[in-house]
Simulated scan of single mutants.
Amino acid sequence: MSKGVLLVNLGSPESTDPKDVKKYLGEFLMDERVIDVPLWARTLLVKGIILNTRPKKSAEAYSKIWWEEGSPLIVLSERLQDKIDNITSVPIALAMRYGTPSIYDGLKELEEKGVDEVLIFPLYPQFAMATTETILVLAEELRQKYFPKMNFTSVPAFYNHPDYIRTLANSISERLEGVDYEHLLFSYHGVPERHIRKSDITNSHCKIDGSCCQTASTAHQFCYRHQCFETTRLVAEYLGLKPNTFSVSFQSRLGFDPWLKPYTDRTIERFGNQGMKKLAIVTPAFVSDCLETLEEIAMEGEEIFHEVGGKEFTVVPCLNDREEWVKVLARWIDEWAHQKPVEA
């Protein structure tokens, strides 16, 4: 068999034009694993409400962070792909779950290179229905329909892999070297609380009550909340952070259902109201900087902090195409290519 790798990230609109943003949001939000309600309700919400109100606002947000080369997430993902491709022994293709290049495009590219054994590599450290799961489900649907001769292997969530923890911790340490800050906030992308319960393979463990994430369970293999807290714990341990100098929050909620708490924007506001003047923030749910990190955190988050009296707001960049990160991914890929399992 000939092996190849498909790196998969979230995706981005083609441009900051509201029409392109509307097309992208439509594909993203109509995914049943993103908004997991019956089709009629999802259609009413997305096509009847959100796509008639949100594209213009989102387009304005994208325009604030758009690079000359294009979408930061796409550009950074392409840089990562190129660097890995230069030092690995197998072909590397890039795809986006939403927008272009599509997962179909990526698989077709590998097929044309003679690849019939593919490592599907979701670029998400933590497992979630709306990220890793939707990638794997779509990839399998495409395999059955268009690429029946291909075999797939997928990289498990690497939220606690020592290589990832070391690389993330080093990126934090490097950015905060010489920075005088009072608190380090680990902000993860939010998901509805019901996603946590739906992903519970035991159907009984996840209660989101403050204790279940610390109690050993097979449910943790697919528990996004546990994996976020565990990433934070391991990084804090690696960096020797003292208790009460760091915490976890969740950003980017949508709608009125309960999402994972505490919310990032309210946490930032609370810190400022309590007199905190110097806050640092890192976003470990993302490996590539994007709208959620460059605009929602680095711009809106800083504005909130300053409005409530905060002075210094330091944002740690995502891993992006950091050399240490490139080498880690390349090593994992080569280990897979030579029949050594990528394990946490």
Rank of each mutant, 00 (worst) to 15 (best):
K3G: 11
E230Y: 05
G26W: 01
K145N: 14
E140I: 05
T53I: 15
K22V: 06
R97M: 05
G272C: 07
P317Q: 12
N273F: 13
H189K: 02
H306W: 01
L241H: 03
L94K: 15
E300C: 10
S171N: 13
T215C: 04
I196E: 03
I87Q: 08
L136R: 10
I268T: 06
V5M: 09
T283W: 04
A285V: 08
I103N: 11
T232F: 02
V21C: 07
R175W: 04
V315R: 03
Y159V: 03
S252E: 02
L25S: 05
R143S: 08
A219Q: 11
A157H: 14
A280M: 00
I268Q: 06
Y62E: 09
V179W: 07
R175M: 13
L142P: 13
A337K: 08
R331P: 12
K64Q: 12
L239T: 08
S15F: 01
Y62T: 08
N52W: 14
W259M: 06
R143W: 04
K340F: 15
L176Y: 00
L234W: 03
T293L: 09
L107K: 02
Y188C: 09
A130S: 15
W40Q: 11
E27F: 05
R225D: 11
E14I: 13
I84R: 02
V315Q: 01
F28S: 06
Q221R: 13
T134N: 00
Y124H: 05
R197C: 15
E323Y: 14
V118D: 09
T16R: 10
V8A: 04
V90Q: 01
S63C: 09
S249G: 08
L73T: 10
I268D: 03
H226Q: 12
E296G: 01
K22W: 07
S211Q: 12
E32P: 14
R194V: 06
I65Q: 00
K261C: 15
S173N: 09
V342A: 04
E237T: 14
N320A: 04
H306F: 01
W40F: 12
S71C: 05
E193L: 13
K108W: 06
V326H: 07
F256C: 13
P341Q: 03
D36S: 14
D334Y: 06
P192I: 07
Q126P: 01
L51A: 02
K261I: 15
E295W: 00
R97H: 09
A128Y: 05
S217K: 06
K149W: 15
L142S: 13
G301N: 00
V342C: 03
N320G: 10
H220E: 05
F256T: 12
N320Q: 04
L51T: 03
P258V: 04
G178I: 14
I304Y: 02
L260C: 06
T88A: 02
T231F: 05
Y188P: 06
C318W: 09
P72R: 00
L76S: 06
C290K: 00
I92F: 02
Y98E: 03
Q214T: 11
G210N: 00
E32C: 09
L80Y: 04
F271T: 02
D180I: 11
W336L: 14
N203S: 10
M129F: 15
G309E: 08
T167C: 14
E230R: 14
S63P: 14
N86A: 10
F305Y: 00
G310C: 11
P18F: 10
